[in-house]
């Protein structure tokens, strides 16, 4: 078990390393740097000026060195300007320019500064992630119980009318991406064209969450996930219901309700646990779409702003967080599966 976890963690670190390098490469392409130079210094620079700006600001080094600096395993660049001032990656960031640290990167907790928001990246990420965390919490509260309930109800008697109707419902929700259901909800539940019960924007929810301004974004994200998790739960429930021990329990005279609740449910919920965990990367997708649609300025919204404004440091930080979330949930799902499944745990 310990070896298994250790191996999984090692693979995860290797994956994280590769992914961050790819992201770093894709955000630091020459055209991106050129654009950065023009937004930071002056929009009317000549090619030669751009070239020298890139050289002077440490972007001229080989990619692998810059990646090392960003990660915090290579010493930050330094050079002396023509007028004698000392400049450098770490020197520019430090308050005390004389005694700046040699290393300043991700590992030292230095995430850089956003060029759009003019704030330290770590600060932005922390507040935005907090807002998204609240959103995700309510999504989970709504999504997980309803998906499990639908899946169990549909799967306990395969082929029944209830199964048919609930399965069709699940298919319909998986066929409706967030940007479609969100538009439907806004039109029918939050505008003059339909009934105006909710608000079509969640901007006010950033300070004060109410049912009125927060339910629609939560519902929009949850709905897309409900169908998928419900179908997985249904599949695992139907499989369990055909097992021999369920038959034995029934023959023993246990009532159908007790069979479902006491014998079937626990075993049927192992697979959905994995699915729910693996659903996180998809939820991230939903978060980006919904935060843009409802103008809720959380993590997803920040990612879109960073990407469309060529804010390299912020985009890198967003990617690190996103990749981290995905990998950790994968790890939890793997370990959880082994832990929950007695057949594997005891063997």
């Amino acid at each position: 078990m310990l070896m298994f976890i250790l191996r999984r963690i090692l693979t995860m670190l290797l994956t994280a390393f590769c992914l961050t390098f790819i992201v770093f490469y894709l955000t630091n392409l020459p055209p991106n740097l050129e654009k950065l130079a023009k937004t930071e210094a002056s929009a009317r620079m000549t090619d030669a000026e751009v070239e020298s700006w890139i050289e002077r600001n440490g972007y001229g080094q080989p990619l692998i060195v810059r990646y090392g600096e960003w990660l915090g395993v290579a010493p930050g660049w330094t050079n002396v300007e023509a007028n004698g001032t000392l400049r450098g990656r770490c020197v520019d960031r430090a308050e005390d320019r004389e005694n700046a640290a040699r290393f300043c990167g991700l590992l030292q907790g230095d995430w850089g500064t956003s060029t759009v928001f003019r704030n330290p990246v770590s600060e932005i990420i922390a507040t935005r992630l907090g807002l998204t965390g609240i959103l995700m919490f309510w999504v989970m509260v709504l999504m997980v119980p309803s998906a499990l309930l639908i899946g169990v109800m549909a799967g306990m008697r395969e082929g029944s009318r209830l199964d048919r109707s609930l399965s069709t419902f699940s298919i319909a929700t998986t066929a409706t991406p967030e940007y479609v259901s969100g538009v439907f909800f806004i039109v029918f539940l939050a505008s003059n064209a339909g009934v105006q019960i909710f608000k079509g924007t969640a901007t006010s929810a950033m300070d004060n969450i109410t049912f009125e301004n927060f339910f629609l974004p939560v519902l929009t994200i949850a709905l897309y996930g409900i169908g998928y998790i419900a179908r997985m739960t249904r599949a695992s429930m139907t499989e369990v219901m055909t097992a021999q021990y369920i038959r034995t329990a029934r023959l023993k005279g246990v009532s159908f309700r007790n069979v479902v609740l006491k014998h079937a449910l626990r075993n049927a919920l192992i697979a959905p646990f994995t699915v729910i965990m693996l659903q996180f990367p998809w939820l991230l997708n939903g978060v980006v779409i919904v935060e843009t649609l409802f103008n809720y300025k959380g993590f997803g919204w920040t990612l879109v702003q960073a990407a469309s404004n060529n804010d390299i440091e912020l985009l890198l930080a967003c990617s690190v967080v996103a990749v981290f979330v995905v990998l950790v949930t994968q790890l939890i799902s793997d370990i959880g599966y082994v832990f929950l499944n007695p057949r594997i745990r005891i063997a």
Binding site: P281, N285, A307, S308, A322, V323, V326
Partner: peptide
């Protein structure tokens, strides 16, 4: 492991 939307943006 890449979030799809991030990959698209990159």
């Amino acid at each position: 492991a890449f979030p799809v939307i991030l990959l698209f943006y990159l």
